[in-house]
Design a protein around this nucleic acid. Structure first.
Length: 278
DNA sequence: ATTGGTTCCTGCTGGC
DNA sequence: TGCCAGCAGGAACCAA
């Protein structure tokens, strides 16, 4: 499920094939995804050159030559499917909701079965003020994120720590999987009340978040190279998770015989080791 | 204001 | 073998 590392991988992969090229057509095959498509979008972006592709939180940003920006959110099941270089694009498949055609013939399909995804647009100069970035917390891999910053964001919060990490206002880009994994490596219980995380623990958690995300991006990046060479398609990858999805399995990081537990918090599965995580 | 619960959607899985 | 309930989840939304 696309969280920060997966979105980063997708953005990098798209950069390789889309940057510096002109967007010939943008075809919308339905009027909405999670929200209605922006009005007049086609006319706003067609003919622009894609200057660069970046990521903020879980959003892919396509910077256009007139200063406008296309904003893509993959939701839960969203994928960006690239045509093979020098090969005529294949026919559209089910759930190909948005199709980008570049001047050199490259076709990129935004396929999203569950339609939790999003396509939006920021006019020139309006990106920073766009609604999707309102209240968004710091980038966990950026300089503005640190133990003290995290501690401050958690202070006064009476929610479980796991729920706080999923709150994009606390820190941007973390989803269910990396919240579980980060808490595991920090040795902190997902059930702990967020406000009880003081300086030392926040420092450890911030570091765990950075480590987990960095490693996941590295894994995605290496998979990406292979994947692009063989099929030209971007997808998601096999991950080595410590606790996520490992209910009943032994805790990998300590000698305890306690199996990894699954509990439900805020309606979502949390996986953790009750002995290692306090 | 904060927080917890619900909803959107479809594909896959497990149980009978 | 086939059916169907249950589950997966990001973020907007609503209600307390």
């Amino acid at each position: 499920m696309p969280e920060l590392p997966e979105v980063e991988t997708v953005a990098r992969g798209l950069s390789l094939r889309m940057e510096g090229k002109r967007l010939k057509t943008l075809d919308l095959h339905r009027p909405d995804l999670r929200r209605p498509m922006p009005t007049g979008l086609k006319a706003l972006v067609e003919g622009r050159v894609i200057l660069g592709i970046a990521r903020r939180a879980k959003y892919v940003l396509m910077h256009l030559s007139d200063g406008g920006t296309l904003i893509v959110h993959l939701g839960m099941s969203g994928r960006m499917l690239l045509s093979d270089p020098g090969v005529p694009p294949t026919a559209l498949e089910k759930h190909d909701h948005v199709v980008f055609t570049l001047e050199d013939g490259t076709v990129v399909r935004f396929n999203d079965a569950r339609r939790f995804g999003l396509l939006d647009y920021a006019a020139p100069g309006q990106l920073a003020d766009h609604r999707v970035f309102e209240g968004l917390g710091p980038e966990p891999l950026g300089n503005e994120f640190s133990g003290p910053v995290l501690a401050e964001a958690l202070a006064g919060k009476s929610t479980p720590l796991k729920a706080a990490l999923l709150d994009q206002r606390v820190v941007a880009g973390i989803g269910n999987i990396y919240a579980c994994e980060s808490l595991y490596y920090a040795g902190l219980s997902p059930r702990r009340i967020a406000a009880t995380v003081t300086a030392a623990r926040a420092e450890k958690l911030a570091q765990a978040i950075r480590d987990v995300l960095t490693k996941a991006i590295a894994a995605g990046g290496s998979s990406l190279r292979d994947y692009v060479q063989t099929s030209g398609e971007l997808g998601y990858f096999q991950h080595q998770w410590a606790v996520y999805g490992k209910e009943g399995e032994p805790c990998p990081g300590c000698d305890c015989d306690k199996a990894i537990q699954r509990i439900v918090q805020s309606g979502r599965s949390t996986f953790y080791c009750a002995k290692r995580q306090r």
